[in-house]
Structure formats: C-alpha cells, structure tokens
Design a protein around this nucleic acid. Sequence first.
DNA 1: ATTTATTGTAACATATTAAGTTATATTTAA
DNA 2: TTAAATATAACTTAATATGTTACAATAAAT
Lengths: 150, 150
Amino acid sequence: MQASANFTKAIHICIYINLKGKLIPSSQLAESLKTNPVVVRRLIALLRKHNIIGSVSGSQGGFHLLRPAKEISLWNIFEATKEEEFFHRPKVNHECVVSSNLSGLLFDAFQEAERSMKPKLKKVSIAFLTNKLKKIIGEKEVSEAIKGVF
Amino acid sequence: MQASANFTKAIHICIYINLKGKLIPSSQLAESLKTNPVVVRRLIALLRKHNIIGSVSGSQGGFHLLRPAKEISLWNIFEATKEEEFFHRPKVNHECVVSSNLSGLLFDAFQEAERSMKPKLKKVSIAFLTNKLKKIIGEKEVSEAIKGVF
DNA sequence: ATTTATTGTAACATATTAAGTTATATTTAA
DNA sequence: TTAAATATAACTTAATATGTTACAATAAAT
C-alpha cells in the first residue's frame, strides 16, 4: 500500500503548493492531508532529494516548488517516492532453484513494464493538473451560484 | 510492499508447479517460499478465483495449474493478486478542494499508466519462464560438473 | 536582543497490517 | 478406517507505517 499512497500524497502536496502560489508550512499541508506536520516533512524530504520541493526555515517559512510546475511530472514524483523496487520480491530461498533464479527470470519483464509507464506519467505535469483543477473549481462555483439563485 | 510481494510469490508458485508437472501440496510450496502452508493456501485462493490454479483435496492432493502454462501470463497473475487499486489513495479530506478532486484529476493518467503495462506482462507466460529456468538449470549443472572434474 | 514561527530530524509510542499458528470440518487415496 | 490433504476461521505475533514529542537551528517580526 504505502508506496502508492505516498505517491498520491506527494502529488497532492505539489498541486496544493502550486495552486496557492506561495510558501506553505507543513502544518497547513498536514491539515489538508489529514495527517500531521512531521509526516508531511518526512514525505517532502523525499521530494527535496529529487529537487522537486524546496524549503525556507524560520518564521513565515514553508515549502515551495523548486521548478516551474510545467517541469514537474508525475514520473518525477513517482521516482522520488517509490523508494524500493516497484515489483518487490521478498526473501530468497537459496536452496530452491525457482526462488534463487526468480529475480533474474523476471528482471526484463518487470523493467519493461515499469518503463512502459514512464511516457504516460511523464506527460502529465503539476501545471496541467492544477489547471484542470482550476476549471473544476470554476465550474463548481458556477453551479453553486445557480443553486443559490434557484 | 505487500501487493507486489504477493505478485512475485504467486509467479514463484506457478513456475514451481509447472516445473514439477504434478500435484504439489501447500507444505512443499511453503518450504520453497520460506513461509507456511496456510499463507500459501491463502495466496492460492486468489489465483483460484481467477482460474489459474486448481486444487485436489484429500490424501495425495495438492495444487495444479488450471490452464496450459502458455496461457497463463504475468498479467493474469498481476490482476489476480493486486486486490486494491494499483495507485492507491488514502483518506480523502472533503473540506479540501485538492483532496476532494484528486481521484478525478488522476484517474486518466493512472489508468493509462496501468494499461501500458498490460501488453508487456501479457506476453510473458509461465511456460516461457519455466523454459528459461530449465535452460539456466541446465547450464548450471554443466558448470557444476566441470567444477567437479577440475 | 527577544520572541515567535518555522524546518529537520531523532527517538519514541501507537495503530494498522501482514504473517504465522492453531484448530477443525471436509475430502479422498491407500 | 486411517492418513494426508484442502479450506477457512479465529487467534497470536511480528513487522511496518503512522503519529507524537522533543529539540536544535534558523530567520522574520517586533
């Protein structure tokens, strides 16, 4: 569960920061993610290593995107948050010919599968998602307004 | 972690059964996987639902492939073992516009990414992997034999 | 200068989930 | 009829993820 949950949380954080367009403290992100500031900072630490998010310490500090949102793709975030191998394999039994050869047997197929996702995730940027969200919010506001009138 | 760990365990089981070419009891599979028979049976229950593995109860019973190994692909096993959404999203915060719209925003991209893996995993069958393994075992036996001689 | 609000990170605690175990009904070969 | 299997439920233990507290470092605001 965890790997993909971190992935979606990280996307959330990036869109949120981009949408607000200013420094956002971990406390605010934590509220939005229904978690706590340390958890947010731990997750952002992964994004920092990949030059996706930067931070400003001290009072009035917080987090911001390190690159234009158009240049941050889902693939970048995916790589930053995956940590372990995507198709992960538990303990090897060296006394079993199947077990001891399995990684080798599967390497090519797993690599191909993972690589096939790259162009699909690469083409979706935080800028694109933020714009899509802005449209949704706009439409909602209109429909809310109509509800109010009728 | 778990989803992909189950995926590789299930592949292990299918190759093992195919390689031996007979009914294999859960105790033997458990030994090979360094786990315990109930864990194996629980995992096989998922494969049974997808008509990949069948069982024979009673003495001398065990598990067997329900289809020719050539017709069991990594994609079939992937689908049988994934259980939850591949790109899983934790709790939604309905008071946050980002959180409440995120699933919708990401749906297309995630679906495309997952679908892009399908042909890659579809083309790799248990028959193919078993043959590949047989070649490796053959080579090893030769090199072992040479070691023995020199 | 001092206070306040922030990050970064370590250490610890709690909660959740996965894995392992025991037990038992059912099945079937020997 | 016995022995060796599966299927599955209920329970226990272990592993992992999440949450919390604490505190040093930093920098803005006063």
